[in-house]
Amino acid sequence: MRAPGLLAASWAIARKDLAIEFRTRSAFLSSVVFSLLAIVIFYFAWDPTAVGPLALAPGVLWVTFTFSGLLAMHRSFGVEAADGAIDALLVAPVARESIFLGKALANVVFVAGVQAVSLPAIAIFYNVPLAGAWLPLLGILLLATVGLVAVGTLFASITANTRMAELLLPVLAIPFFVPVVMPAAQATADVLSGRPIAESFAWLRILLAFDLVFVYACTVAYPFTIED
């Protein structure tokens, strides 16, 4: 059998991870419930008469996405620890970059699934009118999620080698999320308040540049995190 190419191998690994997730659904359900709880709790952390829900929504949304995303990324190498599954993956005749791309792709789908539930939830709970804004919002979500997942997946691989992965992953990853979450939240706020998307192009450019640089850098760096 011929060894699969980079993209075919990535796709196979992403499908494997998503199949595991789809059959157990445990991580997805906890991430969804987590993000719903976060949305609800944040509402009570502010005085709604002083700060309107519409002003809160973008920040709440992105903090929620960041932390529920971290749950997903932590799990993505956690499942490989059982029964030495990562070793089987490493001896597979595929480029190691494709393991990273596959894991990252599965994580993008996972995080997008969580977003698909929490976005309507915030629209309902915070009374945010999404109707006119959903298309630009989708673009912001995609650009930001790719950047978050690229960095988060790489750091999940780094911390999977250590004793305190669940604590170390957010400590290492969150500083790297700053140039994603800030532009994403600002652009979301612009779009939700009815301003045209063209006003957010400066933010979207940062997101796009971050995606290009860090998807490439993390893919190249990944093989160095799993040498044995």
Binding site: V151, L154, I158, N161, F176, A217, A221, F224, T225, E227
Partner: peptide, 10 residues
């Protein structure tokens, strides 16, 4: 050395 090098570069 390996993992911290990756973190330093990023």
């Amino acid at each position: 050395a390996r993992l911290s090098a990756v973190l330093g570069i990023l």
